[in-house]
Amino acid sequence: MIILVSLLVLLMLCAAIAALVFRDLLAAVIASCVVSLLASILFYFLHAPDVAMAEASIGAALVTAIFVIALGRTRRYEE
């Protein structure tokens, strides 16, 4: 269990660092979506199913969609 949790935390931090270094904003948005998704799994392990559902449906789905729509209006690459 603790190994699984440590692995998830490590993956989450890697995804956050990927969101930091990617110059392609679409890839950065997808990386932050991965951060939210892994955080929602961690919320489930912390016995917070309500928060896990909220994070999965809002943080991972809706926020990513809003970001992608806004990226369609602006430019994709960070100069």
Binding site: D50, M53, S57, A61
Partner: peptide, 10 residues
């Protein structure tokens, strides 16, 4: 588990 906020988001 769930409620107005999660259901509204779905």
């Amino acid at each position: 588990p769930g409620g107005g906020f999660q259901g509204g988001a779905i």
